[in-house]
Design a protein around this nucleic acid. Structure first.
Length: 1132
RNA sequence: GGGCUUGUAGCUCAGGUGGUUAGAGCGCUACACUGAUAAUGUAGAGGUCCGUGGUUCGAGUCCACGCAGGCCCA
């Protein structure tokens, strides 16, 4: 076959051509079809949201996914990859709000001047979310990412939602879905919860002056707290905790400390009651509560009311010693249902303010709630009229009746009007209205329960609608009881292979250890509706399929409890349902009314579910499981492999894992690669705003997908952040792809000249040492690359291929073997060279194809006559299998020695300014072992050619000229001598030649009480007297630089060849052209050299005649050392 | 504030289980080479292996405490 030759290859164009070939020939489809019946390898695509344009980091993320899917395909697996789109959620909604110029308040709110119906709004969301799919699809193709874009799963489609509902119902039936509460910002004045988004509006946080209070919590004497009482030598010990919301103190049920914070026990007096107390607070904050002048003061001299209160630090200790200590309830209005009032450990405690101890009331703080849940601390609740648990402050922001002293009073002064305040003042019988906080402070002062009270300025969030302060307050929410399956999730996680491991054990593992229940509720419009219908007295039903919904509606229509409107709405929905035209989103599902067992109307809980549940449900929902495709699902679950950014650890990775653990008692994925970020070249985050974002389309077009992908994969490990620098792609393109293309071109050039088509079969009987060596290296490479891909280490694979191509194949095998290709007829030797090089190139094409899919295929196709071999594309081949029979480690060692020896000789020539074209007579190599001598002997022909030396001679001990040096081998000496190392090293360094000889003969020697064995030392040769020598890591080379007249002449001849070759090239002759040469006789030495080596020269430059003439009219002038020669070269 | 992670030459990165002289590529300087040439070879300059303390005969590597960057969470 004819091999195409290329000049100035454009890798962008290569990608375009191959992409067209893939599309025309349906190669992706074939890569799956041809694996039919084979074991499957399952990959799950984490769905991107198409409401934004793709960035360069998506190229990175998707290259990772692509690599392992392609690799597994090569390994014979059937790898189906279904694409997907994440379509619901807040980012979409916010974008639509922005486009429509509205806020959440305007949606479905008829009173608003900017009213937009939920129906219109959701319609807009549906359009917006798929706005950039074309761009995404385009990028996917151009970067060479193989994923099925024709049948993606889309989370807003009914089939998908139905599967999600099925999963929710399954959880519901397992008792894992429940209605609870979560602590959220709540505005009693407006009667509504606020999102964090709303709280971040400018002006929401305002400076206010609140009453802050440091309370004394009285420690109970138990085994755990005994050490405090012992140290204090007292029967009273208090823990100090600070709060800016004293009204929450009746709801206190725990104290939280930091496990690594240092706490002090201080003996002093209460500043209000002057009673002796022993208090615990963070050591760093002691100075804020105790005057330095009172330190170690005399308690006996203290009189009540003196300003300087004496105090004394008894001792200090870490916070974890406080864990589990019990204390007395501070304000015992309401009792908890289970044991409370314990010290617990929390990660949010600081020593910036307060005492380093956080007063914890689970009903009024998000941190408090979480840490209490994790530690099994109950909340302080009272029962409402329906027997339901409610907090001690009602929805109007007022205390419930059980808080007798403050019943029905608002916890914030701001909730009262001036008139109401006046009324209260009169009731209180004071000059001035005192807030609840102030009166609690007074009460605690008198009860010896307050250690410090003062006004405190701090920013506090306010409701943007009412301007009144918000409370952190428990609000209804639906939860998944992930805490119930925590142990299972941890156990399953331990079976997952995480890359890198630390993400699994650390980031993800810690997250699981501190798991709280999954809050599923979202009060929005565009998302999967929660399929739960409820009646006023809490009867409820969870709908798990469209069929159930249909039955429910049908059943409800038979009842006469429904109003006429409800009936009409139901009928409308039912009709659409039967036609398959229903929309399961709001507002339509909200218009469905069901009937409870006791005959009450049930309406849908208005919540939507967390979008993360959507994406975590994809293993099931992408196949509309269990309503369809059960067989496909069974084969494609769980995933063998997934990959996303490390930021998905608590996102998609978690939701996949949680849902799978609960539904199927299984992991959702067996291997996961969490990738790092793509930063700009200075290590800054890329952002469109800063203008440092790299356009993926431009990059792919300019540099090609393959160099871009190769650069990204080989420059840094996938899980490390990548500093993306376009200069790096250029380097990869020039160095790796350029070298590889040149190597291919070199092969193509000569194979075409000889009309040689490789058979693809290797023949050991004709393979030279050089062939055997590169083939041995290649087998090792196959093993290494296979292993790397198999263990999700693409960077290792790419770097290994790169090293092979650059250092071994191109720079050694081809460079040393060049002559074999361009010399003479096709002999066995030449044949072996062709077969070897073609085999290497084709194997490289396969090995690299997962990372560089276009180029790999391009190279493969260039080398393969697909009309005869039957396999169209590298992606349809089988991954090469290393042939152990070709691995020859001895030979690899030999070649390594050869490379090092050549390097040393080059270095010697360099320092003595003897060019490589000047032949030299010999080198001497001192040899310490017979094995090394044999290893070098194997390759000494190569060495001679490479460095232009006539002979390699070996020196051994017997020669008598060899002097040796001995060095301690610390690694061997260490375990033997330990502390005496320094003395032993000194003894070894001081060994005489006789000592060394004795050691070599007896394998051991006793010197100054030390017995030194042969393996305890490293023996090296010293420089040879009388020669130029160089050495490196145990190898010494001596070069004979004596240039005889014959050598000089040969040098001239070689120089002459070089000049003629240049002339041929400059004159544009073809490689095959035969020429005639005339040289003007101008320098006797040159003439003599040329004449002496006439045959050699003629052969080298393909000259049919070479004559020295005394006159040359139209010759060219050529620089030759210090001379100028005149020659004439003509094509015959 | 917490969890995880990174820190080695001007830049990008390698450096199993501790072993005394820390490497590669790019870039820079110089000299070669030139029928693979967007290459290649040789030599040179360039390092407080983030800091401090510890363990050890010996620490880039192990431990502790910090510093700086990153991600996630609060």
């Amino acid at each position: 076959m004819n091999f195409k030759e290329y000049k100035n290859l454009d890798y962008g164009q290569v990608a375009d051509e191959i992409l067209k070939f893939w599309q025309d020939e349906k190669i992706f489809e074939k890569s799956i079809e041809t694996r039919e019946g084979n074991p499957t390898f399952t990959f799950y695509e984490g769905p991107p949201s198409a409401n934004g344009t793709p960035g360069i980091h998506h190229v990175m993320a998707r290259a990772i996914k692509d690599i392992f899917c392609r690799y597994q395909t090569l390994k014979g697996k059937q790898v189906k990859r279904k694409g997907g789109w994440d379509t619901h959620g807040l980012p979409v909604e916010l974008q639509v709000e922005k486009e429509l110029g509205i806020t959440k308040d305007d949606i479905g709110n008829l009173k608003s001047p900017k009213y937009v119906s939920v129906e219109e709004y959701n319609k807009k969301c549906r359009e917006t979310v798929m706005k950039f799919t074309d761009q995404w699809n385009d990028l996917t193709e151009k970067m060479g990412y193989w994923v099925d874009l024709d049948n993606p799963y889309i989370t807003y489609e009914n089939d998908y939602i139905e599967s999600v509902w099925h999963l929710l119902k399954t959880l519901y039936e397992k008792g894992l879905l429940y209605k609870g509460y979560t602590i959220q910002p709540y505005s009693p004045a407006a009667g509504t919860g606020l999102s964090s988004h709303e709280l971040n509006q400018p002006g929401c946080y305002r400076e206010v002056k609140d009453t802050s209070l440091t309370a004394q919590f009285k420690v109970k004497l138990t085994g755990k707290s005994g050490f405090l009482f012992d140290a204090a030598e007292s029967s009273n010990v208090y823990i100090l905790a600070w709060t800016t919301t004293p009204w929450t103190l009746p709801a206190n049920s725990a104290l939280t400390v930091g496990k690594n914070i240092e706490y002090s026990l201080i003996k002093s007096l209460n500043p209000y009651t002057y009673e002796p107390v022993n208090v615990v607070l963070a050591k760093d904050l002691v100075g804020k509560y105790f005057n330095e002048k009172g330190k170690d003061g005399d308690f006996s001299k203290y009189n009540d009311g003196d300003k300087i209160i004496p105090w004394k630090e008894i001792f200090s200790f870490k916070g974890n010693f406080l864990e589990g200590i019990e204390y007395e309830q501070l304000m015992p209005y309401v009792q908890p249902e289970s044991p409370a009032f314990r010290v617990i450990i929390g990660d949010f405690v600081t020593t910036e303010d307060g005492t380093g101890v956080v007063h914890t009331s689970p009903t009024f703080g998000a941190d408090d709630f979480r840490v209490a849940q994790q530690n099994g601390i109950p909340s302080i609740f009272v029962k409402d009229e329906n027997g339901k648990d409610v907090p001690i402050v009602n929805r109007q922001g007022r205390f419930v009746a059980e808080i007798t002293d403050y019943a029905n009073e608002p916890v914030k002064e701001a909730y009262l009007s001036e008139a109401e305040k006046e009324e209260q003042r009169i009731k209180q019988g004071r000059d001035k209205y005192l807030s609840v906080d102030e009166r609690i402070a007074i009460q605690l002062k008198t009860e010896n329960k307050a250690f410090n009270v003062q006004k405190f300025d701090h920013p506090y969030p306010h409701c943007w609608r009412t301007d009144k302060p918000v409370l952190y307050y428990p609000l209804d929410s639906w939860f998944i009881r992930t805490t119930a399956v925590k142990d299972k999730m941890i156990a399953l996680n331990n079976t997952i292979n995480w890359k890198p491991e630390s993400t699994g054990t650390g980031r993800f593992g810690n997250w699981l250890e501190n798991l709280v229940d999954w809050n599923l509720s979202r009060s929005r419009y565009w998302g999967t509706p929660l399929p739960i219908w409820r009646s006023e007295d809490s009867e409820e039903v969870c709908v798990g399929s469209l069929k159930e919904l249909e039955n429910g509606i049908t059943h409800a229509l038979k009842d006469d409890v429904l109003s006429a409107e409800q009936r009409a709405a139901n009928e409308k929905f039912l009709a659409l349902l039967k036609e398959g035209k229903e929309d399961l989103h709001r507002p339509f599902v909200d218009e469905v009314y069901l009937i409870s067992a006791s005959g009450k109307v049930m309406t849908r809980e208005t919540d939507l579910i967390d979008v993360w549940f959507d994406s975590g449900a994809m293993p099931y929902a992408q196949w509309h499981y269990p309503f369809e495709n059960k067989d496909i699902f069974d084969k494609a679950y769980p995933a063998d492999f997934i990959s996303e950014g490390v930021d998905q650890t608590r996102g998609w990775f978690f939701t996949l894992h949680a849902i799978s653990s609960m539904i199927s008692d299984s992991v959702a994925f067996k291997n996961v690669v969490s990738t790092g970020l793509v930063l700009d070249k200075n290590g800054n985050k890329m952002s469109k705003r800063l203008g440092n974002a790299v356009d993926p389309f431009e990059t792919l077009k300019k540099y090609g997908a393959d160099p871009t992908r190769w650069y990204m994969i080989t420059n840094a490990q996938p899980w490390d952040n990548l500093k993306f620098d376009l200069a790096g792609i250029t380097e990869v393109r020039n160095k790796f792809f350029g070298t590889l293309t040149n190597t291919y071109n070199f092969f193509a050039l000569y194979a075409n000249l000889d009309g040689y088509t490789p058979t693809g079969k290797l023949d050991k009987t004709i393979a030279t040492e050089l062939d055997q060596w590169i083939l041995s290296k290649l087998q090792t490479l196959i093993k290494e690359v296979d292993e790397s891909y198999n263990t999700y280490e693409p960077t290792k694979a790419g770097r290994a291929i790169q090293e092979f191509v650059g250092d071994h194949l191109s720079n050694w095998y081809v460079r040393l073997g060049r002559r074999r290709f361009w010399k003479g007829e096709v002999t066995a030797d030449k044949q072996s060279a062709y077969e070897t090089l073609a085999y290497c190139l084709k194997t490289i094409a396969q090995l690299m194809s997962p990372i560089a899919p276009f180029y790999g295929d391009w190279l493969y196709k260039n080398l393969t006559d697909t009309s005869t071999e039957g396999v169209q594309s590298v992606h349809l081949t089988n991954f090469p299998k290393a042939d152990e029979a070709w691995i020859n480690t001895d030979l690899e060692t030999s070649m390594d020695l050869a490379q090092r020896i050549c390097s040393l000789i080059h270095s010697l020539r360099k320092t003595n300014r003897i060019k490589v074209r000047q032949p030299l007579s010999k080198i001497l190599i001192p040899i310490l072992s017979e094995q090394t001598r044999e290893q070098i002997r194997h390759v000494d022909e190569l060495i001679k050619t490479e460095v232009n030396i006539k002979a390699v001679e070996y020196l051994n001990d017997a020669s008598g000229v060899l002097s040796k040096k001995v060095k301690p081998n610390f690694k061997a000496l260490g375990p033997k001598f330990g502390k005496e190392m320094k003395a032993v090293a000194a003894v070894i360094t001081a060994m005489t030649a006789d000592d060394l000889k004795a050691l070599e003969e007896n394998k051991t020697i006793a010197l100054e009480n030390f017995t030194i064995a042969l393996e305890d030392v490293e023996i090296q040769t010293e420089d040879l007297p009388g020669y130029l020598t160089a050495s490196d890591a145990g190898i010494t080379v001596a070069l004979d630089i004596n240039i005889t007249p014959e050598l000089k002449q040969e040098g001239i001849a070689r120089d002459f060849v070089n000049r003629i070759q240049n002339l041929r090239k400059d004159s544009g002759f073809e490689v095959t052209d035969k020429i005639s040469i005339q040289l003007l006789d101008s320098d006797p030495e040159v003439t003599a050299g040329v004449v002496a080596f006439k045959d050699f020269i003629s052969q080298e430059v393909q000259a049919l005649s070479l004559e020295v003439v005394s006159e040359l009219a139209d010759g060219q002038e050529v620089e030759f050392e210090e001379l100028t020669l005149t020659v004439k070269v003509a094509v015959l």
